[in-house]
Measured scan of single mutants.
Amino acid sequence: MAAGGDHGSPDSYRSPLASRYASPEMCFVFSDRYKFRTWRQLWLWLAEAEQTLGLPITDEQIQEMKSNLENIDFKMAAEEEKRLRHDVMAHVHTFGHCCPKAAGIIHLGATSCYVGDNTDLIILRNALDLLLPKLARVISRLADFAKERASLPTLGFTHFQPAQLTTVGKRCCLWIQDLCMDLQNLKRVRDDLRFRGVKGTTGTQASFLQLFEGDDHKVEQLDKMVTEKAGFKRAFIITGQTYTRKVDIEVLSVLASLGASVHKICTDIRLLANLKEMEEPFEKQQIGSSAMPYKRNPMRSERCCSLARHLMTLVMDPLQTASVQWFERTLDDSANRRICLAEAFLTADTILNTLQNISEGLVVYPKVIERRIRQELPFMATENIIMAMVKAGGSRQDCHEKIRVLSQQAASVVKQEGGDNDLIERIQVDAYFSPIHSQLDHLLDPSSFTGRASQQVQRFLEEEVYPLLKPYESVMKVKAELCL
């Protein structure tokens, strides 16, 4: 049975990233139509530049190519590739079939990587351009969430054990800070992308030097003109047959890092959902379990974690691919890159769409948070109580021993009897502590235990987050809708 299948058929496997999760716009960027249309555009740009620099290419040939950029006979191309065992030459023939007058000058002087690699770089750039505003929107939604809850005390956790208090907004800023680093890295790697350009079979530009009869300047002009037509500021000066596969490492490393950030955020949300302090959106008709109707599973956060793990592992592909590119190139890269580049971007696209949807509907339960604080705060307040007693004339050592005994009794009630923490009640009825009984409410005010959390939130948002989001103001209103 021949390899390949009808990918629109229910009898043929289709990647869930495309069929179930990723956005239509990201799927289109990695589609065959987008790819092969870009090949034709690159052939047109090459012909236009070659004509401008004096090669015998007519206006009629150029116009014929322009008129057929979208006229792609995919069936013919597939048949040609089956016959020739070469995808680029299959599309040269297919393009030439609908451009008979231009057929002889299509791909003039070029090698397969002229269309293959340059198209990949265009796709990487455009895919990054799709991700950047999506990530900015996630940051914006979380920034709104953090600002609104900047002063809401909550129990902090280290080692997932109760620690000092923080605020809900401050905790959210930990998430935002990681995503801001990801946004900066995505922008950097996007701006650092260079075009492969017009380089020939081993990167020496020998074929173009021959076409222009040894004119170095025209060869350099050709490279520059096509690079500018493709919208790049610069091209690699040095290439082998391909652009260095280190570029793929750079791009997928940034995406993998984004995956790590999203995994951490969504894990926190899942843990908070278990504590009943916070939940992701839950639709009115949504079913959490087929057997347990009360369940409210954090399905979206779980999906993000599941896909983020996949995204983090994909960076190993370009690392290994770059390491086995012998001399000017081997074909070890080809099949692998067809999979890992598309999957990385479709996965990143999915987790950003999902995280935006989550961040637009996060639900906080202040009463649950308050109750958990009441359970733990008495123990945390013991040092403040000791200091207040010393100020009232008591002995630190005597007070410490009193607190120690009462704390152990209260802990026994919590752990052995399943009761509430009654340390404060014990202190309130103990005559030894009568000098500070009137101060206990103040000493137990949760806001006095959150330090500068709310001020940190305000400063972080104003100095770091809002300036970073400013270039994306025009796209901030787009909502994230999930079908599944």
Rank of each mutant, 00 (worst) to 15 (best):
K66M: 10
L209M: 08
T450F: 06
A3Q: 15
R296D: 03
Y365V: 08
R83S: 13
F74R: 13
C172L: 06
Q184N: 11
S474F: 15
T244L: 01
R194G: 10
D182R: 01
L314P: 04
L468W: 10
A163I: 01
Y472T: 08
W326A: 05
C304V: 13
L17D: 03
T94S: 13
S112Y: 01
A22V: 13
F157D: 00
M316W: 14
H107M: 01
A150T: 07
V88F: 04
R141N: 11
K264C: 06
F232A: 01
R426S: 10
S290Y: 04
L186M: 11
I358M: 15
I57C: 06
K35Q: 15
E283W: 03
L319N: 01
W326C: 06
G451V: 04
D420K: 06
S151I: 09
H159A: 00
C305L: 03
F232V: 03
G104C: 14
S140G: 14
P162S: 10
L482E: 10
T450C: 12
L44A: 10
D216K: 06
A22T: 14
F449Y: 15
L128E: 07
C173K: 00
S12K: 14
E48K: 05
F460M: 08
L461E: 01
A150Y: 15
I436W: 04
D420Q: 06
C180A: 11
F36Q: 15
A335E: 01
R125S: 10
Y243L: 09
S9W: 15
D420P: 04
W39R: 00
D445R: 13
C305I: 04
D182T: 01
L131G: 06
P366Q: 09
E383H: 02
K134E: 12
L209G: 09
A322E: 12
E463R: 11
H7A: 11
E376K: 05
E464A: 07
L469S: 08
A344S: 10
R85P: 00
T166R: 00
D422Q: 07
G259W: 01
K66Q: 12
F327A: 14
Y13C: 14
Q41D: 11
S19Q: 14
M278V: 13
V262M: 09
E213N: 12
A431G: 13
E250R: 11
K66P: 06
Q428W: 13
Q455G: 10
T347P: 12
P378I: 07
L121E: 09
E60V: 12
L209W: 12
D268R: 00
R137G: 15
R452Y: 07
D6Y: 10
R396F: 05
G5K: 15
N357C: 14
E79W: 13
I57K: 00
I139K: 03
E481V: 11
A381G: 05
M76V: 15
V115I: 15
Y432G: 09
H107W: 00
S253H: 12
Q439A: 15
F195V: 06
C173P: 00
I358T: 14
A273T: 14
V168T: 09
P162I: 06
Q409W: 07
F208H: 07
K82Q: 13
S454T: 14
F327T: 12
Q205P: 00
S454Y: 13
L341Y: 13
K187R: 13
D192M: 09
L179P: 03
I403D: 02
M316C: 09
S301V: 14
L258Q: 08
K246T: 04
S395N: 13
G288M: 02
K391T: 14
E228S: 09
L314I: 10
L135R: 02
E279I: 02
K170H: 08
V414N: 04
L307G: 15
L252H: 11
S395H: 09
A78T: 13
H159Y: 01
S140I: 15
T201S: 05
A344Y: 04
K170G: 03
D268A: 09
M181P: 07
N384L: 11
S334Q: 05
Y466T: 15
T350Q: 12
D144G: 15
D59L: 11
R83M: 11
S438P: 13
A230C: 06
Q409S: 09
F460Q: 02
L209F: 13
Q397V: 07
G451C: 02
P318Q: 04
T38Y: 05
A2L: 14
A103I: 11
Q458P: 08
P298A: 14
T119I: 07
D129G: 13
Q286R: 02
E401V: 05
T111H: 00
D6L: 07
S454P: 13
L482V: 13
L183P: 00
A127C: 08
A388G: 09
Q439H: 08
R188T: 08
V324T: 11
Q51G: 08
A291Y: 03
V413G: 09
L331M: 06
I106E: 00
L174S: 12
I122G: 02
D333S: 00
F208K: 05
F95N: 08
S207G: 14
T321S: 10
E328K: 02
T354V: 15
V88T: 10
N357H: 09
T330P: 01
F157E: 02
I62W: 06
G54Q: 09
K233F: 11
T267L: 08
L406M: 15
A453Q: 00
K199S: 09
I424V: 15
A291Q: 03
Q184H: 11
S454C: 13
Q221H: 12
